[in-house]
Protein backbone atom coordinates (compact mmCIF):
# COMPACT_ATOMS: atom_id res chain seq x y z
CA UNK A 1 0.00 0.00 0.00
CA UNK A 2 1.33 3.39 -1.01
CA UNK A 3 0.61 6.60 0.79
CA UNK A 4 0.28 9.88 -1.03
CA UNK A 5 2.76 12.62 -0.05
CA UNK A 6 -0.12 14.92 0.99
CA UNK A 7 -1.46 12.26 3.36
CA UNK A 8 1.98 11.66 4.86
CA UNK A 9 2.34 15.43 5.27
CA UNK A 10 -0.95 15.61 7.16
CA UNK A 11 0.22 12.90 9.53
CA UNK A 12 3.53 14.68 10.16
CA UNK A 13 1.71 17.93 11.00
CA UNK A 14 -0.74 16.15 13.32
CA UNK A 15 1.98 14.22 15.13
CA UNK A 16 3.98 17.44 15.51
CA UNK A 17 0.89 19.11 16.96
CA UNK A 18 0.47 16.31 19.49
CA UNK A 19 4.10 16.55 20.58
CA UNK A 20 3.72 20.30 20.91
CA UNK A 21 0.70 19.88 23.15
CA UNK A 22 1.92 17.08 25.35
CA UNK A 23 5.65 17.60 25.32
CA UNK A 24 5.90 21.23 26.35
CA UNK A 25 5.24 22.90 29.65
CA UNK A 26 2.48 25.46 29.86
CA UNK A 27 3.81 28.84 28.70
CA UNK A 28 4.21 31.39 31.45
CA UNK A 29 4.18 34.50 29.29
CA UNK A 30 1.62 36.75 30.92
CA UNK A 31 0.55 38.09 27.56
CA UNK A 32 -0.42 34.67 26.22
CA UNK A 33 -4.09 34.42 25.36
CA UNK A 34 -6.26 31.31 25.39
CA UNK A 35 -5.05 29.04 22.57
CA UNK A 36 -7.35 28.98 19.57
CA UNK A 37 -9.22 25.83 18.75
CA UNK A 38 -10.69 24.53 15.55
CA UNK A 39 -14.14 26.06 15.23
CA UNK A 40 -15.52 22.61 14.51
CA UNK A 41 -14.19 21.13 17.73
CA UNK A 42 -16.54 19.76 20.35
CA UNK A 43 -18.28 22.28 22.56
CA UNK A 44 -17.79 20.27 25.71
CA UNK A 45 -14.61 18.56 26.88
CA UNK A 46 -15.32 15.47 28.87
CA UNK A 47 -17.96 17.06 31.04
CA UNK A 48 -21.11 15.31 32.10
CA UNK A 49 -23.85 17.23 30.38
CA UNK A 50 -27.47 16.85 31.35
CA UNK A 51 -29.77 18.71 29.04
CA UNK A 52 -26.91 21.04 28.24
CA UNK A 53 -25.75 21.34 31.83
CA UNK A 54 -22.72 20.11 33.73
CA UNK A 55 -23.67 18.46 37.02
CA UNK A 56 -22.36 19.50 40.41
CA UNK A 57 -22.71 17.41 43.55
CA UNK A 58 -21.94 18.69 47.06
CA UNK A 59 -18.67 17.49 48.52
CA UNK A 60 -19.07 14.67 51.08
CA UNK A 61 -16.60 16.62 53.20
CA UNK A 62 -19.09 19.42 53.83
CA UNK A 63 -21.67 17.09 55.33
CA UNK A 64 -18.97 15.24 57.28
CA UNK A 65 -17.86 18.51 58.89
CA UNK A 66 -21.43 19.24 60.00
CA UNK A 67 -21.81 15.71 61.40
CA UNK A 68 -18.67 16.07 63.52
CA UNK A 69 -19.82 19.49 64.75
CA UNK A 70 -23.11 17.94 65.90
CA UNK A 71 -21.09 16.06 68.56
CA UNK A 72 -22.48 12.62 67.75
CA UNK A 73 -19.82 10.02 68.53
CA UNK A 74 -17.65 8.43 65.86
CA UNK A 75 -18.93 5.00 64.82
CA UNK A 76 -16.48 2.87 62.92
CA UNK A 77 -19.13 0.26 62.13
CA UNK A 78 -21.01 2.76 59.97
CA UNK A 79 -18.24 2.78 57.40
CA UNK A 80 -17.88 0.43 54.49
CA UNK A 81 -16.01 -2.84 54.94
CA UNK A 82 -12.45 -2.49 53.62
CA UNK A 83 -12.27 -6.19 52.76
CA UNK A 84 -15.05 -5.80 50.21
CA UNK A 85 -12.91 -3.69 47.88
CA UNK A 86 -11.21 -6.64 46.24
CA UNK A 87 -14.55 -8.29 45.41
CA UNK A 88 -15.71 -5.58 43.04
CA UNK A 89 -15.11 -6.70 39.48
CA UNK A 90 -16.95 -4.24 37.26
CA UNK A 91 -15.67 -0.72 36.64
CA UNK A 92 -19.02 0.66 37.74
CA UNK A 93 -18.78 -1.02 41.15
CA UNK A 94 -15.18 0.05 41.54
CA UNK A 95 -16.08 3.66 40.76
CA UNK A 96 -19.10 3.70 43.06
CA UNK A 97 -17.06 2.29 45.93
CA UNK A 98 -14.14 4.64 45.31
CA UNK A 99 -16.66 7.36 46.11
CA UNK A 100 -17.89 5.44 49.16
CA UNK A 101 -14.38 5.00 50.60
CA UNK A 102 -13.64 8.66 49.87
CA UNK A 103 -16.67 9.78 51.90
CA UNK A 104 -15.61 7.42 54.70
CA UNK A 105 -12.16 9.04 54.65
CA UNK A 106 -13.72 12.50 55.04
CA UNK A 107 -15.81 11.22 57.98
CA UNK A 108 -12.76 9.66 59.66
CA UNK A 109 -10.58 12.71 59.09
CA UNK A 110 -13.12 14.97 60.80
CA UNK A 111 -12.99 12.76 63.89
CA UNK A 112 -9.18 12.67 63.67
CA UNK A 113 -8.86 8.90 63.63
CA UNK A 114 -5.32 8.72 62.28
CA UNK A 115 -4.71 4.98 61.92
CA UNK A 116 -8.15 4.27 60.49
CA UNK A 117 -7.68 7.16 58.08
CA UNK A 118 -4.51 5.48 56.87
CA UNK A 119 -6.38 2.25 56.16
CA UNK A 120 -9.15 4.04 54.27
CA UNK A 121 -6.76 6.18 52.29
CA UNK A 122 -5.07 2.93 51.33
CA UNK A 123 -8.46 1.67 50.08
CA UNK A 124 -9.02 4.91 48.17
CA UNK A 125 -5.59 4.61 46.55
CA UNK A 126 -6.10 0.96 45.63
CA UNK A 127 -9.58 1.64 44.25
CA UNK A 128 -8.12 4.44 42.14
CA UNK A 129 -5.41 2.02 41.05
CA UNK A 130 -8.02 -0.56 40.06
CA UNK A 131 -9.55 2.05 37.77
CA UNK A 132 -6.12 2.97 36.36
CA UNK A 133 -6.46 6.48 37.76
CA UNK A 134 -3.69 6.40 40.34
CA UNK A 135 -0.85 6.47 37.82
CA UNK A 136 -2.22 9.75 36.49
CA UNK A 137 -2.36 11.55 39.83
CA UNK A 138 0.65 13.51 41.02
CA UNK A 139 2.69 11.15 43.22
CA UNK A 140 3.67 14.10 45.43
CA UNK A 141 0.01 14.66 46.27
CA UNK A 142 -0.39 11.02 47.30
CA UNK A 143 2.76 11.25 49.44
CA UNK A 144 1.56 14.44 51.10
CA UNK A 145 -1.69 12.77 52.09
CA UNK A 146 0.16 9.76 53.49
CA UNK A 147 2.59 11.98 55.40
CA UNK A 148 -0.19 14.11 56.88
CA UNK A 149 -2.78 11.43 57.51
CA UNK A 150 -3.24 12.50 61.16
CA UNK A 151 -3.72 16.16 60.31
CA UNK A 152 -7.42 16.72 59.81
CA UNK A 153 -7.30 19.87 57.72
CA UNK A 154 -4.51 18.54 55.52
CA UNK A 155 -6.29 15.27 54.84
CA UNK A 156 -9.56 17.03 53.98
CA UNK A 157 -7.87 19.52 51.67
CA UNK A 158 -5.48 17.10 50.01
CA UNK A 159 -7.96 14.25 49.59
CA UNK A 160 -10.34 16.74 47.91
CA UNK A 161 -7.51 17.58 45.51
CA UNK A 162 -7.00 13.84 44.96
CA UNK A 163 -10.65 13.37 43.99
CA UNK A 164 -10.58 16.45 41.80
CA UNK A 165 -7.55 15.05 39.95
CA UNK A 166 -9.36 11.71 39.56
CA UNK A 167 -12.48 13.47 38.29
CA UNK A 168 -10.41 15.44 35.79
CA UNK A 169 -8.60 12.34 34.56
CA UNK A 170 -11.79 10.33 34.07
CA UNK A 171 -13.53 13.17 32.23
CA UNK A 172 -10.48 13.74 30.04
CA UNK A 173 -10.42 10.12 29.00
CA UNK A 174 -14.03 9.70 27.99
CA UNK A 175 -14.91 7.99 31.25
CA UNK A 176 -17.23 10.71 32.53
CA UNK A 177 -19.76 7.98 33.34
CA UNK A 178 -17.36 6.59 35.93
CA UNK A 179 -16.68 10.09 37.28
CA UNK A 180 -20.43 10.39 37.85
CA UNK A 181 -20.53 7.07 39.70
CA UNK A 182 -17.70 8.17 42.01
CA UNK A 183 -19.81 11.22 42.88
CA UNK A 184 -22.90 9.07 43.43
CA UNK A 185 -21.04 6.66 45.74
CA UNK A 186 -19.61 9.53 47.77
CA UNK A 187 -22.93 11.32 48.04
CA UNK A 188 -24.84 8.22 49.19
CA UNK A 189 -22.19 7.32 51.77
CA UNK A 190 -22.07 10.87 53.14
CA UNK A 191 -25.84 10.78 53.71
CA UNK A 192 -25.61 7.31 55.26
CA UNK A 193 -22.98 8.59 57.71
CA UNK A 194 -25.11 11.66 58.53
CA UNK A 195 -28.28 9.79 59.52
CA UNK A 196 -27.27 9.31 63.19
CA UNK A 197 -26.58 13.01 63.57
CA UNK A 198 -29.71 13.88 61.60
CA UNK A 199 -31.84 12.06 64.17
CA UNK A 200 -30.67 14.34 66.98
CA UNK A 201 -29.53 17.54 65.31
CA UNK A 202 -31.81 19.92 63.40
CA UNK A 203 -28.98 21.45 61.34
CA UNK A 204 -27.84 18.07 60.04
CA UNK A 205 -31.41 16.94 59.42
CA UNK A 206 -32.21 20.06 57.43
CA UNK A 207 -28.93 19.75 55.53
CA UNK A 208 -30.03 16.26 54.49
CA UNK A 209 -33.25 17.88 53.30
CA UNK A 210 -31.27 20.36 51.23
CA UNK A 211 -29.93 17.60 48.95
CA UNK A 212 -32.89 17.78 46.57
CA UNK A 213 -30.96 19.26 43.67
CA UNK A 214 -28.08 16.80 44.09
CA UNK A 215 -30.52 13.89 44.17
CA UNK A 216 -32.27 15.08 41.01
CA UNK A 217 -28.97 15.51 39.17
CA UNK A 218 -27.70 12.09 40.17
CA UNK A 219 -30.99 10.46 39.27
CA UNK A 220 -30.92 12.01 35.80
CA UNK A 221 -27.30 11.00 35.39
CA UNK A 222 -27.97 7.40 36.37
CA UNK A 223 -31.01 7.17 34.12
CA UNK A 224 -28.68 7.65 31.16
CA UNK A 225 -26.97 4.32 31.87
CA UNK A 226 -28.28 1.53 29.67
CA UNK A 227 -26.41 -1.28 31.44
CA UNK A 228 -29.05 -3.63 32.97
CA UNK A 229 -26.85 -4.06 36.06
CA UNK A 230 -27.71 -0.46 36.98
CA UNK A 231 -31.48 -0.89 36.86
CA UNK A 232 -31.98 -1.56 40.60
CA UNK A 233 -29.92 1.48 41.44
CA UNK A 234 -31.88 3.59 38.95
CA UNK A 235 -35.17 2.46 40.46
CA UNK A 236 -34.15 3.21 44.03
CA UNK A 237 -32.65 6.58 43.19
CA UNK A 238 -35.76 7.57 41.25
CA UNK A 239 -37.82 6.68 44.32
CA UNK A 240 -35.54 8.80 46.49
CA UNK A 241 -35.98 11.65 44.03
CA UNK A 242 -39.75 11.31 44.42
CA UNK A 243 -39.38 11.61 48.20
CA UNK A 244 -37.23 14.72 47.80
CA UNK A 245 -39.92 16.34 45.67
CA UNK A 246 -41.80 16.95 48.94
CA UNK A 247 -38.91 19.00 50.34
CA UNK A 248 -39.01 21.95 47.99
CA UNK A 249 -37.57 24.93 49.86
CA UNK A 250 -39.37 28.24 50.20
CA UNK A 251 -37.21 30.91 48.61
CA UNK A 252 -37.24 34.68 49.04
CA UNK A 253 -34.77 36.75 47.03
CA UNK A 254 -32.48 39.09 48.94
CA UNK A 255 -30.22 41.64 47.28
CA UNK A 256 -26.58 40.55 47.57
CA UNK A 257 -24.14 42.80 49.41
CA UNK A 258 -20.64 43.14 47.97
CA UNK A 259 -17.44 44.17 49.66
CA UNK A 260 -15.21 44.75 46.61
CA UNK A 261 -12.14 45.45 48.70
CA UNK A 262 -12.40 42.02 50.30
CA UNK A 263 -13.48 40.41 47.03
CA UNK A 264 -16.50 39.05 48.84
CA UNK A 265 -20.24 39.02 48.14
CA UNK A 266 -22.82 38.13 50.75
CA UNK A 267 -25.85 36.23 49.45
CA UNK A 268 -28.73 37.26 51.68
CA UNK A 269 -31.64 35.37 50.11
CA UNK A 270 -33.82 33.42 52.51
CA UNK A 271 -34.50 29.74 51.95
CA UNK A 272 -35.77 27.09 54.31
CA UNK A 273 -36.25 23.35 54.24
CA UNK A 274 -37.60 21.92 57.47
CA UNK A 275 -37.24 18.16 57.54
CA UNK A 276 -39.26 16.31 60.18
CA UNK A 277 -38.01 13.19 61.92
CA UNK A 278 -40.58 11.25 59.91
CA UNK A 279 -39.27 12.72 56.65
CA UNK A 280 -35.75 11.79 57.67
CA UNK A 281 -36.87 8.21 58.26
CA UNK A 282 -38.19 8.00 54.68
CA UNK A 283 -34.91 9.30 53.25
CA UNK A 284 -32.93 6.96 55.47
CA UNK A 285 -34.78 3.85 54.29
CA UNK A 286 -34.08 4.73 50.68
CA UNK A 287 -30.45 5.76 51.24
CA UNK A 288 -29.76 2.47 53.02
CA UNK A 289 -31.36 0.53 50.16
CA UNK A 290 -29.21 2.37 47.62
CA UNK A 291 -26.08 1.89 49.70
CA UNK A 292 -26.84 -1.81 49.97
CA UNK A 293 -26.90 -2.09 46.17
CA UNK A 294 -23.69 -0.10 45.81
CA UNK A 295 -21.68 -1.96 48.43
CA UNK A 296 -22.99 -5.52 48.10
Amino acid sequence: MKLRPAFIGTWIVLIALLFTQYGCEQPTNSNTKAPLLDSNSVSSAGTIKLDGQIISIPSPTQLAILVEQSKVPFRKELMHDLAKREKYLSEQKKALNLGVYGADLAYIANYQQGQIANDYFDAVGKSAGDLEILDHIDGKLVSRISNNISERDSVLRLSAQFFQAADRYLKSNERADLAGLVLLGGWVESLHLAMDAGAVNDDVRNRIGEQKHACESLSELLNKFTDPSMSDLQKQLNELKAIYTNFTPKYVYGKPITDAKEKTTYFTSKSTVMLSVEDLAKVKVKIEAIRQIITQ
Binding site: T61, Q164, D167
Partner: peptide, 14 residues
Amino acid sequence: NYITDGQAYRALLN
Protein backbone atom coordinates in the same frame (compact mmCIF):
# COMPACT_ATOMS: atom_id res chain seq x y z
CA ASN B 1 -7.95 28.01 53.49
CA TYR B 2 -10.29 26.38 51.01
CA ILE B 3 -11.20 22.78 50.25
CA THR B 4 -12.27 22.02 46.69
CA ASP B 5 -15.50 20.14 46.12
CA GLY B 6 -13.49 17.47 44.30
CA GLN B 7 -14.95 18.14 40.88
CA ALA B 8 -13.57 19.55 37.64
CA TYR B 9 -16.01 21.79 35.76
CA ARG B 10 -14.84 22.58 32.27
CA ALA B 11 -16.01 23.03 28.71
CA LEU B 12 -14.53 23.98 25.38
CA LEU B 13 -16.10 27.25 24.29
CA ASN B 14 -16.23 28.97 20.93
